[in-house]
Simulated assay, not measured.
Amino acid sequence: MTAAHGELMDRVYRTQRHIYDLTRKYYLLGRDGLIAELAPPRGGSVLEIGCGTGRNLVAVGKAWPEAQLFGVDISDAMLATARTSLGRAGIDAKLARGDACDFDPQALFGRATFDRVFISYTLSMIPDWKAALVHAARCVAPGRRLEIVDFGQQDRLPRVWRRTLFGWLAQFHVAPRAELAPMIAGLAREMGSAGHCRSLYRGYAIRGGIARG
């Protein structure tokens, strides 16, 4: 899947990446709240899976300047933009190309686990998103956390809104995951860890995570 999906993402975002952050800031809601709540330990490691343009890593670097930052993405085009964005902001981060479902953090970054792992509006773009979520949890160090934000099911918003949004997102190969909340809860139980999940903005977004035991 790596090559095919990576090529697809490069095609979709080869030009979109230049205006991605400007346009997405109005509807990728909940990202900044997640970053504000990351609270990595002093000098701790933070990995973003699906780092895209680097927008979130720049925000993490500003909010938590002592953190060690890492990012992985399947799109070479997005990674090129991320490197430019981070360099312009003067923030150091190690970036690498990899498939969210099976990248090897030890090979890419020289470490197997991280103090904080987060996924922001990425699971809705990954075909095998369940495998990506399981893999992300494995990248969390014992006693540390995985945090997630993504599109919800718009359940407390007008039906016409849901149809319009979902139809528009489909043009970018984005599909909000109806099973995300139960998947987080089930994975937390399997790991013997504590999970959390809540709806944001009347179901527009879902915010969840796992604190690894």
Rank of each mutant, 00 (worst) to 15 (best):
150 D>W: 00
12 V>T: 14
153 Q>H: 10
62 K>Y: 05
30 G>V: 11
176 P>V: 01
135 H>K: 09
29 L>T: 04
96 A>K: 00
112 A>N: 05
102 D>N: 15
194 A>S: 14
124 S>G: 05
7 E>W: 01
86 L>R: 00
189 R>V: 12
180 L>T: 04
150 D>I: 02
96 A>Q: 02
21 D>W: 01
54 G>W: 02
83 R>I: 01
32 D>E: 15
165 L>Y: 00
75 S>W: 00
127 P>I: 02
113 T>S: 12
212 R>Q: 13
92 D>A: 15
7 E>N: 12
25 K>I: 10
64 W>K: 12
68 Q>H: 10
85 S>K: 08
141 A>G: 09
52 G>W: 00
13 Y>T: 13
7 E>V: 07
205 A>L: 02
18 H>T: 10
56 N>S: 14
94 K>E: 08
55 R>Y: 13
106 Q>D: 14
149 V>Y: 01
213 G>K: 12
3 A>V: 14
101 C>Y: 01
196 H>P: 02
100 A>C: 13
65 P>V: 09
139 C>R: 05
181 A>N: 05
175 A>L: 13
195 G>M: 07
151 F>G: 06
44 G>A: 13
178 A>E: 14
171 Q>Y: 09
186 G>S: 05
135 H>F: 05
72 V>A: 11
41 P>T: 01
182 P>H: 03
183 M>D: 14
41 P>L: 05
169 L>W: 00
178 A>I: 07
105 P>W: 03
192 G>E: 08
170 A>G: 07
75 S>L: 01
18 H>Q: 13
184 I>Y: 01
17 R>G: 10
126 I>T: 03
161 W>P: 03
17 R>Q: 11
48 E>I: 10
116 R>D: 09
2 T>P: 04
65 P>M: 09
206 I>A: 04
195 G>K: 01
45 S>M: 07
99 D>E: 12
37 E>T: 10
48 E>L: 11
110 G>V: 08
22 L>H: 00
118 F>W: 12
27 Y>M: 08
7 E>H: 05
160 V>M: 14
96 A>M: 03
202 R>F: 01
161 W>E: 14
132 A>M: 08
58 V>G: 08
208 G>C: 04
137 A>T: 05
90 G>P: 11
104 D>C: 06
26 Y>M: 07
1 M>W: 08
147 E>R: 11
154 Q>A: 15
50 G>Y: 03
37 E>W: 02
145 R>C: 12
84 T>G: 05
196 H>Y: 14
207 R>F: 02
189 R>F: 05
213 G>I: 11
15 T>W: 11
201 Y>H: 08
132 A>T: 07
166 F>E: 15
28 L>F: 12
101 C>E: 15
104 D>F: 02
149 V>M: 05
36 A>Y: 00
159 R>A: 15
109 F>Y: 03
6 G>Y: 06
158 P>M: 04
19 I>C: 06
175 A>N: 08
205 A>G: 04
150 D>E: 06
210 I>P: 10
106 Q>S: 07
141 A>D: 11
76 D>Q: 10
152 G>L: 05
147 E>A: 15
49 I>V: 15
130 K>A: 08
60 V>C: 13
164 T>E: 08
97 R>E: 14
20 Y>D: 10
213 G>F: 09
38 L>S: 06
129 W>A: 13
63 A>H: 07
67 A>T: 06
12 V>R: 11
